[in-house]
Simulated scan of single mutants.
Amino acid sequence: MATQPSSTGGQWKRSHKARKRWSQRVTESSDALDLETGVFTLEDPREIALSLKRSAERSQRRKADPFLSAMSMLTFYINRAGRRLPADKRARLEAAKDELRALYHRR
């Protein structure tokens, strides 16, 4: 991974290119779920939750139970988007968390 000295002196930071690909690499190479294409672009929070549930239950790569894997992937996406995530999309994804809890009877 490429590094460069920071302007704060003495510390090293990863290059922009290395930081930019971090979440993609985690998603592809970790024991993450194999998600359906476009799951986070769906308009209906229930559809997002159902897609995550299907992916979690089919996945051979997950280590935790399906509910925890699905919730972790949703939280990961929200956290990685950070401030760039529009308020309406954040609200839809937070509602998908509630739907996911309801699908797994975890209210």
Score class of each variant (00 low, 15 high):
95 A>N: 10
24 Q>E: 06
70 A>M: 12
41 T>G: 11
16 H>E: 10
18 A>M: 11
89 K>R: 15
4 Q>G: 00
63 K>F: 00
92 R>G: 00
28 E>L: 14
77 Y>D: 04
10 G>A: 03
82 G>L: 13
1 M>A: 11
77 Y>S: 04
34 D>V: 14
97 K>D: 00
30 S>Y: 03
13 K>P: 01
56 A>F: 08
43 E>R: 11
17 K>I: 00
10 G>S: 06
75 T>H: 12
77 Y>Q: 12
89 K>E: 08
19 R>Y: 00
87 A>D: 08
102 A>D: 07
50 L>Q: 09
62 R>I: 13
45 P>K: 13
50 L>N: 03
41 T>R: 13
30 S>E: 07
81 A>M: 15
39 V>T: 10
33 L>A: 00
83 R>A: 05
54 R>F: 00
3 T>Q: 10
77 Y>N: 11
58 R>G: 02
15 S>H: 09
91 A>I: 10
99 E>I: 04
8 T>K: 15
12 W>M: 14
34 D>K: 15
12 W>F: 13
42 L>I: 03
11 Q>R: 14
103 L>T: 01
74 L>C: 11
66 P>L: 09
36 E>I: 13
68 L>N: 12
14 R>T: 01
102 A>R: 14
32 A>H: 10
5 P>I: 06
32 A>M: 14
65 D>W: 04
65 D>H: 09
5 P>C: 01
3 T>F: 08
104 Y>T: 05
12 W>N: 10
19 R>S: 01
57 E>S: 07
21 R>N: 06
50 L>F: 01
64 A>W: 05
29 S>L: 13
49 A>K: 13
47 E>F: 02
5 P>V: 04
27 T>W: 03
41 T>E: 10
1 M>T: 09
77 Y>E: 09
72 S>W: 12
22 W>N: 05
1 M>P: 12
95 A>I: 07
93 L>Y: 02
44 D>P: 03
16 H>K: 14
3 T>N: 02
60 Q>G: 00
62 R>S: 04
84 R>M: 07
74 L>G: 05
63 K>T: 05
67 F>H: 12
8 T>N: 13
8 T>A: 13
103 L>S: 00
9 G>K: 14
32 A>L: 07
94 E>A: 09
87 A>H: 09
97 K>W: 03
10 G>R: 13
20 K>H: 09
80 R>D: 02
82 G>W: 14
53 K>Q: 14
44 D>F: 01
105 H>D: 09
78 I>A: 03
19 R>L: 06
83 R>M: 08
50 L>K: 07
100 L>H: 06
106 R>E: 02
105 H>Y: 04
83 R>D: 04
85 L>C: 07
88 D>F: 04
15 S>V: 08
15 S>I: 02
53 K>T: 11
8 T>Q: 14
71 M>V: 06
49 A>Y: 08
29 S>P: 01
105 H>G: 02
86 P>I: 05
9 G>R: 14
57 E>A: 04
51 S>M: 08
22 W>P: 00
79 N>L: 15
57 E>I: 10
31 D>K: 15
60 Q>D: 08
61 R>Q: 08
24 Q>L: 07
102 A>Y: 03
13 K>L: 12
16 H>Q: 11
